[in-house]
Design a protein around this nucleic acid. Sequence first.
DNA 1: AGCTTTTCTGATTTTGTAGTCAGAAAGTGA
DNA 2: TCACTTTCTGACTACAAAATCAGAAAAGCT
Lengths: 220, 220
Amino acid sequence: MPDATDWSSTPKGEATAARIREVALDQFSRLGFERVTLGGIARAARVSQPALHYHFQDKAQLWRSAMLALAAVIAEEERLMAVARDLPAVSQLRMAMRLFLQISWNHPALGRIVALEGMAGGERLEWLNRRLIGPRNRRLAELARQAIADGDLRPFPPEMLIVTLQTGGVGVINLAPLMREGFGVDPDLPAARAAHEEMILEALLGGFLTERGRARESVR
Amino acid sequence: MPDATDWSSTPKGEATAARIREVALDQFSRLGFERVTLGGIARAARVSQPALHYHFQDKAQLWRSAMLALAAVIAEEERLMAVARDLPAVSQLRMAMRLFLQISWNHPALGRIVALEGMAGGERLEWLNRRLIGPRNRRLAELARQAIADGDLRPFPPEMLIVTLQTGGVGVINLAPLMREGFGVDPDLPAARAAHEEMILEALLGGFLTERGRARESVR
DNA sequence: AGCTTTTCTGATTTTGTAGTCAGAAAGTGA
DNA sequence: TCACTTTCTGACTACAAAATCAGAAAAGCT
């Protein structure tokens, strides 16, 4: 078995491994870990089920391997954030939220998986926190802490603020089945998407701003 | 097998059935449907595992039966809402959100289960929408629509607004494992709970208010 | 007490899925 | 062509959990 975490290895096998990871990420994000079966992944990836065990040790490692695709997304976000380094904390936070919303649209898997595992707890959430979302959340909370110190954000506990902002965004964007079935609304509206993003952002973040923070924003 | 949906029946059996439902609701809300085992429920309820099949047809029906406990919670909410019938829509909405946050604290199962199933879709979500949360959500969306017509809320799609408000609240209150493990924060703070509720409410709903809605609120 | 019904259990079967293994096919280099 | 490695499959095992069933215990009734 080739080392599946060694990205640059084995040209032929890596192609199928990548296809498997892709299918796995899709299914894990839509159904959650337990509802996904290796047989289902194998079928969708057009390989036999033992092929999964050739490329990946077990189901848990396949899950982690699929998640690593999201690390690239987070790294890209961090890269884009760098250009705002010298802006006030509240503006950086706004930009981070804007990026987060765009990521949630483009990579629904991220938000859904974090939410699914975040509800249930357990070792996969621990892994996610350690490897992917933990450092990112701490950076954001630090920004929030700074913005509060600046008097731009209301004195809400920074960690709770970040969780609120993100789960609110994840909810609007990712609770598609709920909305579709509950309201008969189709949330997949690429045309109005950008406008929606702005409204969600303003609505969510706007509630936490102080008057000073609001004024600061209009100046920018 | 007695009809488990007939609430007034069989005094002795109903006691254990109720105990089983209670345990089931707790486990389903913490772990999600698939991670819960009938054996685990049986152990926690101090009965043998076939006893579950005596009182409930199968795992799915036990789940639905446990969920019906939440119908009482929603009915109670509706009853409390009645006193606000003549207030402006935006004030009713604020009250509804306040109740929702309190419910989320007191009955974490509700929010968690809806969120878990809402992400994954499927027949259980369909059932929830049909039997429990659908009618409630439509009522709230109608209130939002009215508040927007009154000029008190910004013209955000009412359904999305409701989803945003609730998932934001659910997130802050229910993503306890995520917060605990990710931030090292213990979110179980009954002392500060009421204050937190107010802040969450102001922050979430505040972002959607127009200037007029803000003014209206300060008059109340 | 004796009979009947309800409530529950121990033992067992069934089912679905993760994981294994021996070996076939496909690709690689001499 | 032939040896060799990588990649993959069909058939299988292992196991956990849902569901069943025959019958025991408890409760209720006369």
